[in-house]
Write a protein that binds this DNA or RNA. Structure first.
Lengths: 219, 219
DNA sequence: TTATAAACAGACCGGTTGTCCTGTTTTGTC
DNA sequence: GACAAAACAGGACAACCGGTCTGTTTATAA
């Protein structure tokens, strides 16, 4: 009698593997079209283990949203924009980076946040709240960056919230069309339309007034 | 033995009733979350009748997309924009009309096209093509209107396709956020951001060059 | 070692799903 | 009226889904 292989408990690793395939499968096929059997097979996990870490399918999806989708938005949008020299440049860079990534990978699976938001927002209020918070954080990061730019004198008197809302909306909608047409070109199209627009509320445009003094309020 | 009620065949009416509830249910719960049993119960239709008009669930959804969703986009977007005095005014009017409608009805179910597009674009190529075509028609109508405005001298040298893409993207994305937050305010926010932008490519702005010649087309 | 709980395995079950199939009724046509 | 096709009724079914349940193995602490 041979004891062939011994089991090694690895709770974190197993949880991570499940979240990996769940994130990927939910993104590719959606929540309802992904069965737990599919996930178990893809992750090489038994039902007992899956149920141990995520008692229900909803709990699994909630974890995907709060841990993975939120992180994805942070990594591809919030952090780059905050690190950019200005909000406008950050937005432009993200648009282009995403467009290029999609074009060279040959297909468009859409925005993880928007994909799940459309399918789950009306299905369950817990889902909806988690998704709405990610949207809110996303918009607030952009608005904060605009405000910082304005303090530096590099941005006009545009309303930060409006700019942020429009940016997120334009990106989300563009990704929606890119997914339907399987063509990332509309992303570039929207970016160019976005760039060709100029801010107007301050009709007399302050042209590159590089920061001279620390300013307390919006220029 | 009493023959109480006789049956009356009404193919078109039955088909219409099925499409009515399918359109509504797909919009509210999505495709995968709507079972044929639900639809049959809601429509008061038996399985035989349903299967007679729509052999598969996919065929039903395809009919909803091509007949109902396309019509909804036409009625709430294409026709009003084409009938408006200008593309910009038409877009503004639609944004406001939708926002007001959502606010007074108290909840947001999202854009029918985007809802189905997100769930079905990757699931099946026939779905995807049908949805992509509706997006394309939507954008083209707006672009055509911009071109008409330009011929009338009421619009600058903005790129019509870019304007159209950005408009559809901004609306789709705004509806996505409105659905997640169950608050139509973001629609107004995006509209204001949109209005505050000015067209730039023709840096010297042609200001209100009112029509000098009789125009053959829409006034 | 021993006790205890966590981690995992895998079978099992009730309910649902989409589809199919057989029959009956209505409608149109000659 | 005869007949064929369309329109409709409703049951049946196999596959599948998510969740539960019991049992076994591993890690931890005393």
């Amino acid at each position: 009698m041979v004891m062939r292989k011994k089991r090694t408990n690895d709770p974190e690793g197993m949880r991570r593997r499940v979240l990996d395939v769940a994130e990927d499968t939910f993104q590719a096929r959606g929540y309802h079209a992904s069965s737990l059997g599919d996930l178990m097979a893809a992750a090489g996990v038994t039902g007992g283990a899956l149920h141990h870490h995520f008692p229900t399918k909803k709990a699994l999806a909630l974890a995907v949203i709060e841990e993975r989708v939120a992180a994805a938005v942070r990594e591809t949008w919030i952090d780059p924009v905050l690190a950019a020299p200005s909000a406008r440049e950050g937005v432009r860079a993200v648009f282009e980076a995403v467009a290029e990534e999609l074009e060279q990978q040959g297909y468009v699976r859409g925005c993880p946040l928007n994909n799940l938001a459309h399918e789950l927002s009306l299905a369950d209020d817990e889902f909806r709240l988690a998704l709405a918070r990610i949207f809110a954080d996303w918009r607030q990061a952009i608005a904060d960056k605009i405000r910082a730019d304005q303090l530096d004198g590099g941005e006009g008197a545009i309303d930060p919230e409006r700019f942020a809302a429009l940016t997120v909306a334009a990106y989300s909608g563009a990704m929606s069309m890119a997914k339907a047409s399987q063509n990332a070109g509309v992303l570039r199209e929207c970016l160019k339309g976005f760039e060709n627009f100029e801010l107007s509320p301050s009709r007399g445009r302050l042209k590159r007034r590089r920061r001279v003094l620390p300013r307390p309020k919006i220029g």
